[in-house]
Design a protein around this nucleic acid. Structure first.
Length: 346
DNA sequence: AAGACGGGGAC
DNA sequence: GTCCCAGTCTT
């Protein structure tokens, strides 16, 4: 039997009953695919339900504010997904009359919709025979065919896409695409795949040559950067604090945080107070500063470690960006900030 | 072609 | 600690 048939047969037996598998509604499929980019199903699932409840249709999402969307997205990471989601919802709702494009070629023009997501929506919703190539597909194909081309190299991306193109079941593209992904997620998983009772174990090149553990091959990324964050948690006499929105490019764009002083190294209280940045932020000449966390909080992102100190700054009044402390939880914030707010308990 | 972009789970 | 996750966008 061909690998194509075996994958589909395996899938029909073993597929998980996921909520977005009960529909071909492009709004729901699109939403689920954006959420699941670089994200585990278990992590994304609660957000999928929250979003559908808050925004049952693309119009509801389009009519929300970006702040509302980011607040619901809080904790999922890769926040550009949420900003692009909102922008695309507005485009579909207002310019496309609420109708999603029906082809790969048109879908990929949407913000936040790349090669993978365009193929997923086109195949699942509209039965277009265009192959998905996600992390699972890379793994299954590189192992089965013993391909050593790095999956994150330009040539690797082309090679695996072409292979998936040949392999896809043109009669049942939706089923095939989901089958190969689910097979990679459940059976041919990254660590300790179930080769002993794998339906492909009579023809898998990696298994035959004992190279399952080395495949797929992936080029290493650069090293991790260390950054030193000092958050000034202002507290005024009338129970207000101060939040700022991150407007620049970079991490957490459009999310909120306490006034931030970034430094080249870990700062002592004395060093902090001497910085011009501190004086600019704390104009009140009647203030008290104390370090909240004795140990630095090291918040780990994919490409940087944020060594963070939270400084409690008691002041008489706050002039810019003052908000009642009781309102903090209404703002979308990074998990680093949310964890502090939860623990500090004002 | 190479980096940037989050947070969490498994080992 | 390491690697990976239903990837995309920017430089």
């Amino acid at each position: 039997m061909k690998i194509r048939k075996k994958l589909i047969a395996w899938y029909l037996m073993h597929k998980r009953p996921l909520p977005w598998r009960e529909t071909q509604d492009p709004y729901k499929i699109w939403l689920s695919e954006i959420m699941l980019q670089q994200t585990r199903v278990e992590q994304g699932m609660p957000y999928y339900f929250k979003f559908l409840e808050a925004f049952p249709s693309v119009h509801d999402l389009a009519n929300a504010t970006e702040g509302e969307v980011l607040k619901l997205w809080q904790g999922l990471g890769y926040y550009s997904r949420a900003r692009n989601l909102h922008e695309t919802a507005k485009h579909v709702s207002k310019s496309l009359n609420g109708q999603f494009p029906r082809t790969y070629k048109e879908l990929i023009k949407l913000k936040g919709v790349g090669d993978y997501t365009a193929s997923a929506i086109a195949s699942i919703c509209f039965n277009e025979a265009t192959p998905v190539v996600d992390g699972n597909v890379y793994r299954v194909l590189s192992r089965y065919y013993g391909i050593r081309t790095p999956i994150n190299s330009t040539s690797g991306i082309k090679e695996f896409k072409a292979l998936a193109e040949e392999l896809i079941d043109k009669e049942r593209p939706a089923t095939f695409n989901q089958a190969i992904m689910e097979f990679g997620a459940i059976q041919c998983k990254p660590q300790n795949p179930y080769c002993l009772h794998c339906p492909l174990n009579d023809s898998c090149m990696a298994l035959a040559t004992s190279k399952v553990k080395e495949l797929p091959i992936k080029l290493k990324k650069g090293k991790i950067k260390r950054r030193f964050f000092n958050y000034l948690v202002m507290i005024s006499d009338d129970d207000e604090t101060q939040l700022q929105q991150r407007t620049k490019k970079g991490i957490w764009q459009h999310l909120y945080e306490f006034p931030l002083i970034e430094a080249e190294k870990k700062l002592s209280k004395k060093e902090l107070l001497e910085l011009q940045g501190f004086k600019d932020l704390v104009k009140d000449n009647n203030f008290k500063v104390s370090l909240y966390n004795d140990e630095e909080v090291i918040h780990k992102l994919s490409h940087q470690h944020l060594h963070t100190q939270f400084w409690i700054v008691l002041v008489n009044e706050i002039k810019k960006g003052a908000i009642p402390i009781s309102n903090i939880k209404k703002y979308p914030v990074p998990i680093l900030i949310d964890n502090f707010v939860e623990e500090f308990n004002f």
